Simulated assay, not measured.
Amino acid sequence: MPRSVSTNRELREKSRERILAAALEVFAEKGYEAASISDVTERAAVSRGLVSYYFTNKQRLAAELLDRWLDGIGGILGLQGSADERLAAIIDGSLMVAAATLPVQRLAITLMMLPATHPIFADVEAEKADRVREMEDAIRSIFAERGAAEPAVEEMLLRATLEGVTVKMAIYPATFPVEAIRRRLHASYSLPEPTAPLPIPSPQVDRLRAK
């Protein structure tokens, strides 16, 4: 009996997701430049033709992964509550996402910074210009409500701070004191002290060391 249209669509989507998951693993293990499409097809256990059907080349695979990363950080657009509550939610949400998706974070950081792949990131960012602008404006509106003299500068500083924290979490996952840093960030913005720790591993403050 022939498969239904919905069944075929579901199978195609599963194949596409398997390829993307394999690409993330391979890029994380070997580095983007050293990884090949053959590595991805072998890890995904699919034919090269199937990979080429969805992604014409390695650059498109990287672009899709970066596209999803940008979508992830755009989740702040749905936040509700007072300016302080939204700011606290951005800080906590960013730390939670970073802790839960460290392989994605490492890859995104690498692709953004490497000269060979920075143009890919720039293209993806340009394609999502409207959504990125909405995210920036959402953060700026929070600081405007809090009475900041320069909301745009505050938005850039917050994003730079959280991205820097994410880099350290990606490099030192076993020794980065997430909870202590979180509470320091809350205090730096005069937010109420969190009533409970985030539900993620967080070592005591000592020294950052790779393990």
Rank of each mutant, 00 (worst) to 15 (best):
R18H: 10
T101V: 01
A21S: 10
P119K: 09
A129G: 02
K58V: 03
A100F: 00
I109K: 04
A152P: 05
L11T: 11
G74N: 10
M169R: 03
A34E: 13
K168D: 15
F176E: 00
R159S: 06
A63I: 10
L157K: 07
L24N: 05
A149Y: 00
Y54V: 03
F55N: 02
A28G: 04
G78Q: 09
E127D: 15
L77P: 05
I91W: 08
E150C: 04
L198N: 09
E155N: 10
L185S: 09
A126G: 12
M156F: 05
R207V: 14
S52A: 07
G78A: 12
V124L: 07
H118A: 13
F143A: 01
E179H: 01
A170D: 04
P173N: 02
A28H: 00
I37G: 07
L111S: 06
I171C: 00
A22H: 03
A187P: 08
P173Y: 02
L158T: 03
M156G: 09
A108M: 10
S47L: 06
A83F: 07
L185V: 08
K128R: 13
S82M: 04
I181Y: 04
E29S: 07
M1I: 12
T7S: 15
A170Y: 06
L11Y: 11
A126R: 15
E134M: 09
H118Y: 03
A63D: 13
P115D: 12
M169V: 07
A129W: 04
E179I: 02
H118T: 10
N8K: 15
S4Q: 14
R207D: 10
A63T: 11
R146H: 02
K168H: 15
G81A: 09
V5I: 14
H118G: 06
Q80V: 12
I73Y: 06
V167K: 08
Y32R: 05
T56N: 11
S82V: 02
E155A: 12
L95G: 02
V178G: 04
L24T: 06
H118L: 07
A187Q: 13
S141L: 07
I90M: 12
G147D: 02
I19T: 05
V124I: 14
F176C: 01
E33A: 15
E154P: 08
V5M: 08
E163K: 13
T175C: 00
R184P: 00
E17K: 13
Y189Q: 06
V46C: 14
I200D: 02
I91Q: 07
A180T: 09
K30R: 12
S82H: 03
A99D: 06
V51T: 08
E134Q: 12
V40T: 06
H186N: 11
H186E: 03
D84S: 15
R207L: 12
E29K: 04
E17V: 10
P2N: 14
Y54S: 00
I139D: 01
S38V: 10
M156S: 13
A89R: 11
I109Q: 07
